[in-house]
Each structure stands twice: as structure tokens, then as C-alpha cells.
């Protein structure tokens, strides 16, 4: 990878882990969401094991969306975004690199936390492995699709909520194939691989569409 991309990744990761970065707040939110679900549906362990993959996926989706509103806005607020747009680097690649760094800072911790939270939901070892694997393959797609919303709402004061509204419909396919792959691993007769490969394809597809659309939105964000 070229020097500027490395510099950008390093900067984003530093910002994420230092004071005010909030790299781990996404994981905390994930933990909080998974904790309140049993209060809603009841503590029946068999039921929780059945809906566990869906709970984890919805928790990961919400945690990802809530962390995304500052993806470009923080850089816009202090003028960094202007300089990035005129830096002479491809805006699409800048978006892709920023998404990568953001996923390492917020998405990857969700994947790491998922097995622990899966224990709370009484999933067995096979199901834990399946859910974690699908999250590993699918959360990058959530970040990349969310980046479109983050770019569209970059200039808005209350962009965070709008971002979620804009992005949730676009993430439905990811959710469907992620949850069905994870559930397929639990209820044997259905194949795991088919939905899982579609999930991987969605991630690859969004790694093209996400940066293209987000870069277009950022270019037109100037006023």
C-alpha cells in the first residue's frame, strides 16, 4: 500500500484510540443492546438460543450505524475534509481507506466481542463460530454502506439519526444473508455455505459501491 494510505490509516487508528476517540463505545453499545433484549423477550434460554444470531446481528448493525456519523463529519468540522478533497488523492480510495480504518476500530471489536455475548444468549459452540464468522464477513459491508449515509449527512447538524434512517433499508440484504447463514449452521439441514458466499459477495460489492457513492456525495458537500 502506498505511503499516503498508510499515513491515513495510522492517523485514523490513533484518533480512534486516543482521548475522545470512542473506539470501544460501539462494543459497549453492542453489549448494552444484547443485555436488554432478554428483558424484552424473557429469559427463556431455549428461545434466546433460537433468536441469538438475529439479536447479535441487529446489535452489530445498530452499533455500526451509531458509530458512523463522525466518519466524515469530524474531518469536515475542522477543515480536514477540504484539504483531503484537494490533496490530489483519489477520493474513492480515501473513503475506502477511512472505512477500513473505521472497521478495524469499531467493527472488528464487535466481531471479537460476539463470542462472549453469544454465551449470554446460550448459543452452542458451533453457532458461536458461525455467528462470529458471518459477522467477520458481513460487518465490513455495514461500514461501507453506512459510509454512503455518513457522506450524505456530513454537512447536517443532526446527521446521526438521519444517517440511520437512510442506511437501514440498504443494509437489509446483508442482515438477511448474515442471519440466514448463521441460523443455517444451527439447524442442520439448510446449507451454510450458500448464504455465506452471498454475504461475502455483498461485502465485495459494497466495497465498490460504497466508496463510489460516498465520494460523489463528499464532492458535492462543498458549498
Amino acid at each position: 500500500m502506498t505511503g499516503w494510505a498508510q499515513a491515513l490509516i495510522l492517523r485514523e487508528l490513533r484518533l480512534a484510540v486516543r482521548v475522545g476517540g470512542g473506539a470501544l463505545i460501539g462494543v459497549l453499545f453492542f453489549l448494552a443492546v444484547v443485555t436488554v433484549i432478554p428483558f424484552g423477550v424473557g429469559p427463556d434460554l431455549n428461545l434466546l438460543a433460537l433468536i441469538g444470531p438475529a439479536i447479535l446481528w441487529i446489535g452489530a448493525l445498530l452499533a455500526t450505524l451509531l458509530g458512523l456519523d463522525r466518519l466524515f463529519q469530524a474531518d469536515r468540522d475542522d477543515g480536514s475534509l477540504d484539504l483531503m478533497l484537494m490533496s490530489g488523492r483519489s477520493v474513492e480510495l480515501i473513503v475506502l481507506v477511512k472505512c477500513l480504518a473505521h472497521w478495524v476500530g469499531t467493527g472488528l471489536p464487535l466481531v471479537v466481542a460476539a463470542p462472549v455475548l453469544a454465551i449470554f444468549l446460550n448459543l452452542d459452540a458451533l453457532a458461536i463460530g458461525a455467528v462470529t464468522l458471518t459477522l467477520l464477513a458481513g460487518t465490513p459491508a455495514l461500514t461501507l454502506i453506512g459510509a454512503i449515509g455518513a457522506a450524505l449527512t456530513v454537512s447536517l447538524r443532526r446527521g446521526g439519526l438521519l444517517l440511520a434512517v437512510l442506511v437501514v433499508p440498504l443494509t437489509i440484504p446483508v442482515l438477511i444473508f448474515g442471519v440466514s447463514a448463521a441460523s443455517a449452521a444451527i439447524t442442520q439441514p439448510m446449507p451454510f455455505l450458500t448464504p455465506f458466499l452471498i454475504l461475502c459477495a455483498l461485502t465485495l460489492l459494497s466495497s465498490v459501491i460504497g466508496p463510489l457513492a460516498a465520494a460523489a456525495a463528499l464532492r458535492h458537500s462543498g458549498d
Binding site: G3, W4, L8, L10, R14, G20, G79, D82, L83, S87
Partner: peptide
């Protein structure tokens, strides 16, 4: 062009040298 506007494009949590080194490596 270099654009030097009202905003400083600095990140408070990065060190002074880190801020500058980032823009040096990043800007073509």
C-alpha cells in the same frame, strides 16, 4: 494549490509533529 483557510485542520489528540507529518505524507 495549498489552501489556508479559517479552519486549522488539526486534530487535538494527535501530537504537533503527528499532525504535520500526516499532512506531509498525505498531500500530493
Amino acid at each position: 494549490c495549498h489552501y489556508f483557510g479559517h479552519q486549522d485542520a488539526l486534530k487535538p489528540s494527535l501530537s504537533v509533529a503527528e499532525n504535520l507529518a500526516f499532512w506531509q505524507a498525505f498531500t500530493a
